[in-house]
């Protein structure tokens, strides 16, 4: 899709740049650009976090990002430009882990497309994070089962609507 840019970058070689995302979705037709920037937080569930390692099944993630783009287009209509990027590998506190930008003629579609995309990236994409703590311990985060979605498209639909977390986490 010409109006969709999807990336999985190796954190040891490339940093996600907000300016790149905004430049990519900018267009003379668009008066609204919404962005979501997800950064590594220095604390989680009462523990001091020093970094996060992300593991990604890249080929499937890129397919699902494309599905997310198609779903966003169905939801808000054309014209829409959407940028979805996620970092893979070890990140430090404050580093950008995920970056979504949506450009549309008006703000409502931009906010909606951006929100739909980030929720689907978090809940329906094959991405895992391992938190590293100040005491040297590490732990994989609890997450959302893709069994509940059974398909990328269903997962996007779940992510865009109400979504319960029986395992009691917040993200």
């Amino acid at each position: 899709m010409d109006n969709l840019r999807t990336l999985v970058v190796d954190a040891s070689q490339t940093r996600l740049e907000v300016a790149d995302a905004i430049a990519w979705v900018s267009d003379p037709r668009f008066g609204g650009i919404a962005t979501f920037i997800g950064c590594v937080r220095g604390a989680n569930l009462g523990r001091v976090v020093t970094g996060i390692s992300y593991d990604i099944f890249r080929p499937l993630a890129l397919h699902i990002f494309a599905d997310i783009g198609a779903q966003a287009r169905r939801e808000v209509g054309d014209p829409l430009k959407l940028y979805i990027a996620h970092a893979c590998g070890r990140l430090a506190v404050g580093d950008i882990a995920v970056l979504v930008a949506a450009g549309t003629p008006h703000r409502d579609e931009a906010f909606r497309a951006c929100r739909l995309a980030i929720e689907a990236v978090k809940h329906a994409s094959p991405i895992w994070k391992q938190e590293h703590y100040i005491d040297g311990d590490s732990a994989w985060s609890e997450g959302c089962s893709l069994c509940d979605a059974q398909s990328a498209e269903a997962g996007v639909a779940v992510a865009a609507g109400s979504h319960q977390h029986p395992h009691g986490h917040r993200h």
Binding site: I56, L60, H63, V98, K122, I127, S145, L146, H171
Partner: peptide, 27 residues
């Protein structure tokens, strides 16, 4: 597979690398 999540009742595709995906936690 590399391009889709498989349904529980689906036959396994032959000669294709598969992956097991624990609950996800991106972002």
């Amino acid at each position: 597979s590399r391009d889709s999540v498989l349904r529980e009742t689906s036959p396994l595709p032959a000669g294709v690398e598969l992956a097991v995906l624990p609950p996800v936690s991106g972002g």
